[in-house]
Nucleic acid binder design. Sequence first.
DNA 1: AAATATTTTGCAACAAAGTTGCATCTTCCT
DNA 2: AGGAAGATGCAACTTTGTTGCAAAATATTT
Lengths: 139, 139
Amino acid sequence: MEQAIQEILKRNRLSVTDSRVKILELFLSQAGALAHGDIEKKTGEKFDRVTVYRTLQVFLGKGIIHTIPTADNSIRYALCRENCAEGHHHDNHVHFVCSDCGNTTCLDDITIPQIQLPTGYQTQQVEMLVSGICRECKS
Amino acid sequence: MEQAIQEILKRNRLSVTDSRVKILELFLSQAGALAHGDIEKKTGEKFDRVTVYRTLQVFLGKGIIHTIPTADNSIRYALCRENCAEGHHHDNHVHFVCSDCGNTTCLDDITIPQIQLPTGYQTQQVEMLVSGICRECKS
DNA sequence: AAATATTTTGCAACAAAGTTGCATCTTCCT
DNA sequence: AGGAAGATGCAACTTTGTTGCAAAATATTT
């Protein structure tokens, strides 16, 4: 994993620092999306709040992670699949929020269907957000 | 308009107060969705912040308005069409955020398409959020 | 229409979330 | 190893949202 992380950082011309490594580790070691708060807690509160904010901003800018809007007004972050160009994702998968466990996951294989907007509207990006019960919580 | 507003409040067994009337007026007098901040500003800062929060909560609970999650982590509120039951909307329309003027609108006539989730996932609610350029800004 | 009961409001105080400037420390490059 | 560039932590601050409570407004009863 250590390898992979270095690779990601280097590919994006970012210096390799403790916080960046630890935060990327977090993302890589679990499937779901993370809110800012989760990150602060799960890194063992080793980093300053400000550092976490700034690290997320940098990752966002480089297209390493993307945001997921949620109904409860708390932005989640998730890793982008391979090939997001700097600042320009192709992030056309559906996001799922479990109303039981609260986890947010990217359903990478479910593509957002095309829709026909009224004339005069021009689409740039589409987000689709499903809430419900996830596989783990259903059983 | 005054009529209509009273009607809405009475139908929902809410007492008719200045703040509620003014805030409903705001929603009725313009198409788009409003963020909490917009409301504070546009009412001419006559009401306490707390009152605005509470009023929105009440309207939400009664199904008079619904929330729209946005990518920038600021919840918008918009009027529900006619017949939302208390606490239970049928809110299956698409939301549009203009990246130029910033306005958020309900595309009431565009229905969210059905999607097929992976087995094991159970859907409760689906949100679809399109960003782009709106009719007004395009010209 | 007045009196009472019920709601709603505004204030104060607080908690959480996010931002900025700046000095210090790390990382990277040669 | 040394210096430039960049990242971090701290402090201070702003914005956003919440809660308890007394005062005020609204609704209800007679």
